[in-house]
Structure formats: C-alpha cells, structure tokens
Amino acid sequence: MSQQVRGVIARSAGAPVELTTIVIPEPGPEEVVVSIAACGVCHTDLTYREGGINDEFPFLLGHEAAGTVESVGPAVRSVAPGDFVILNWRAVCGTCRACRRGRPQYCFSTFNATQKMTLTDGTELTPALGIGAFADKTLVHAGQCTKVDPAADPAVAGLLGCGVMAGLGAALNTGGVGRDDSVAVIGCGGVGNAAIAGARLVGARTIIGIDRDPRKLRWAAELGATHVIDATAEDPVAAVRALTGGFGADVVIDAVGNPSTWEQAFYARDLAGTVVLVGVPTPDMRLEMPMLDFFSHGGALKSAWYGDCLPERDFPTFIDLYLQGRLPLDRFVSERITLDEVEKAFHTMYSGDVLRSVVIL
C-alpha cells in the first residue's frame, strides 16, 4: 500500500525549496522503502535546485542519507526490514563492461528504483541522484542500500553517501595515498578535508591543506593537516615545494575544480606524482597549458568520481574505523537541522560557515 510522507522538493530552477506531501509506493521487485534517520545537505542538492544537473523538475532533493529498511519488495535478499543502511547512488549492475572486467567501482549502468514517487496530484518526482532523502521515507533500489553497524550515529553515517566518501576515496582509492607519502589538498571544504582525514588515516608523512578561508584551514589542521597554506598570502605551488624538499607532493588533490586550481595541482606535484581532480568543473571551463609539460612531468592525472568507491566494500570499513575512534567522521557534522530548514542550510552553505548541515528526522 502506498503511503504519504513529508518531502522537500525543488519545483523550478532557482525557486526556494518546498516542504510538501509526497507519495511513496509499495516497493516492487528489487525495491526497498527506507525510513530516513538523517540526511546531509550537499552542494549537489543545491545544483539540482538551480537546474545545473538537468531540467527534470520537480526534484525530490537529498541523497547523503542513512536510515532503517522499513519494507522490501519481491526478490530482495540483500537487506531486510530493520537493517540500518547508508544509501548510495552506485548500485552496481554486475553485467556492464566495467563490472565484467572486475572494476565495479566504475559501473556504467547503476540501478535505481523502477517506480516513481509522486506528489499527491500524481506529478512524478525525480529523486536527486536516484535517492531523494529529504523525506521521512524514500523508495530506492535494494542495491542502493549498504548495511553498516547500527551503533553509528545516522548523521555521521549518511555523509559517506556522497561528499565525505568522495574526499576519502579521492585520497585512498584514486590517489592511492600511502604511508610516508606527501599530500597536498587544494580546497578544504567537506570533500577536501575528508581527503585530508583519509591521508592521515593511512599514515601520510606530510599533509598540506590549501585554501583562502582561515576557517577552512583551521578545520584542515584539526582533521590531520601537518601544514596549511593561505592561498591569499602566498603562492601555493612554491609553498608546497618548500614543504617537500623542493620536489613537490607525491599526490595533489584538487577539491575545487577550476582551471587555476588544477594547474596549481599539476605544478605542485613531484615528478611522476599524481594529480586527482575531485572538485566538479562547470561545462564552460577550459584548460590551456604547454603540452610539453604533460610529457616532461610524467606521473598520473586522474579524476575521482564518487572517490572510486564501492559502497559494499568501503562503507562498512569506514564506519568501523569511525566507531574505533580512528576516523573522525563526526567532525564533519557542523549543525543538525530539521526538514523545514533545508533552504536556510543552502544559504549557510554559501557563507562557508559549515562543513555539513545534517537534517535529522
């Protein structure tokens, strides 16, 4: 039987979000209804609201979520009612060319629920990243649910669903940061600071946080940066080289995603070092550099999509590390808000006052 719950929608590009009543259908084959406990406010949700993803309005926003499985449809075996889960937008198919080659973290055909959630008048909703978790409950594909230890704080656990996982994965999965490496991270918001926390976790020797905002640099130091660089006061490339014996860092992560920061990342790395782009550029951005520099520097130039994460592998591991006190995921929760404060949280995000606002349901 379908049910009606509260949900936050974006009805048109740029318009303030609305808290309204939405309809959740009974789960069909391979579908699951999840009762949402907490959901982080991610910049991607704001991009949806602004029409920067596509124009399939109205959107049901929210995707960094954790909650409890309420009911499951036919043929669901991976989760059961009562399971505590983190929702993800990479429900791997197992059959695409990436999955067949043993690289499911690059799956090209991820699953979403088949049925649509709707408004009470029957208008179909487009769930953000196939999730739509700014709601009391949501409908997802069973593969979008990853079971983790229920001892975890839902406000903390849900952040692995997107931004924090993107940063951790950029450092550990894509960048391959290891013990005694030197690492520089450009942009110390939620994603960049997660990369810093990941580098610290695996024992990187030198961890450099770079930003223009003193608050973000303080957060970087708290989360594991051994050095911070104020990009308004000194040249980041020269500063990184000075901190790494004149050579540059083994891994440089661009968590901003524009041509100037990517160029800084390129020249701040050691010969044969790695650049990881995890910040998301806009379609109009272009890069112009001497091609000879690409040849002469060697190394690897990579992009991290969702931190090259595989939810069933990564989520339980990071939650266990958090519960052991080895990964301070709780520091990313700057404030806890209610469902009717999402629009306010978007404005707080603009001001740079938080790493993450988290909706508690």
Score class of each variant (00 low, 15 high):
residue 148 V to R: 01
residue 344 K to P: 09
residue 239 A to Y: 01
residue 315 F to Y: 14
residue 235 D to W: 09
residue 272 A to V: 12
residue 238 A to M: 06
residue 88 N to S: 11
residue 319 I to A: 10
residue 145 C to I: 09
residue 330 D to H: 15
residue 288 E to A: 15
residue 174 T to R: 04
residue 157 A to E: 09
residue 187 G to I: 05
residue 54 N to P: 02
residue 112 N to Y: 06
residue 145 C to A: 06
residue 250 D to P: 02
residue 330 D to E: 14
residue 189 G to Y: 00
residue 78 S to C: 04
residue 14 G to Y: 11
residue 188 C to H: 07
residue 129 L to F: 11
residue 354 V to A: 13
residue 244 T to Q: 02
residue 106 Y to E: 15
residue 276 V to P: 06
residue 301 L to I: 13
residue 2 S to P: 12
residue 237 V to W: 00
residue 189 G to W: 00
residue 217 L to Y: 09
residue 304 A to T: 10
residue 298 G to A: 05
residue 42 C to V: 00
residue 215 R to S: 03
residue 173 N to P: 13
residue 351 S to Y: 02
residue 66 A to G: 08
residue 219 W to A: 00
residue 135 A to I: 03
residue 161 G to H: 01
residue 180 D to M: 09
residue 230 D to N: 10
residue 1 M to G: 01
residue 213 D to E: 06
residue 291 M to D: 12
residue 103 R to H: 11
residue 307 G to P: 10
residue 288 E to F: 13
residue 76 V to L: 04
residue 265 A to P: 07
residue 50 E to A: 12
residue 198 G to N: 04
residue 295 F to G: 15
residue 292 L to M: 09
residue 139 L to Y: 07
residue 62 G to A: 03
residue 5 V to Y: 08
residue 221 A to T: 15
residue 105 Q to Y: 14
residue 177 V to H: 11
residue 106 Y to T: 08
residue 144 Q to T: 01
residue 201 L to Q: 06
residue 244 T to M: 06
residue 10 A to I: 03
residue 135 A to P: 01
residue 87 L to S: 10
residue 233 A to L: 14
residue 105 Q to L: 07
residue 349 M to L: 12
residue 245 G to Y: 12
residue 156 V to L: 15
residue 3 Q to C: 09
residue 247 F to Y: 11
residue 17 V to T: 15
residue 304 A to M: 07
residue 343 E to S: 03
residue 346 F to M: 02
residue 164 V to I: 13
residue 354 V to L: 12
residue 323 L to C: 10
residue 253 I to M: 11
residue 88 N to L: 11
residue 3 Q to P: 00
residue 114 T to D: 10
residue 213 D to F: 04
residue 28 G to P: 02
residue 134 F to T: 00
residue 81 P to T: 07
residue 270 D to Y: 07
residue 68 T to E: 06
residue 134 F to I: 02
residue 100 R to D: 14
residue 310 L to W: 03
residue 241 R to M: 03
residue 84 F to G: 09
residue 50 E to N: 14
residue 14 G to Q: 13
residue 97 R to Y: 09
residue 156 V to M: 14
residue 71 S to E: 02
residue 190 G to R: 06
residue 244 T to N: 02
residue 31 E to D: 03
residue 104 P to M: 13
residue 199 A to T: 06
residue 320 D to Y: 14
residue 315 F to W: 12
residue 91 A to C: 04
residue 308 D to I: 13
residue 139 L to K: 07
residue 314 D to N: 15
residue 298 G to Q: 01
residue 204 A to G: 05
residue 19 L to A: 04
residue 6 R to S: 08
residue 92 V to P: 05
residue 264 Q to M: 12
residue 89 W to D: 04
residue 291 M to F: 13
residue 30 E to P: 00
residue 174 T to C: 07
residue 171 A to S: 09
residue 192 G to T: 04
residue 158 G to A: 04
residue 63 H to M: 01
residue 254 D to V: 00
residue 231 A to P: 01
residue 2 S to D: 13
residue 271 L to V: 05
residue 269 R to H: 05
residue 68 T to Q: 10
residue 140 V to K: 08
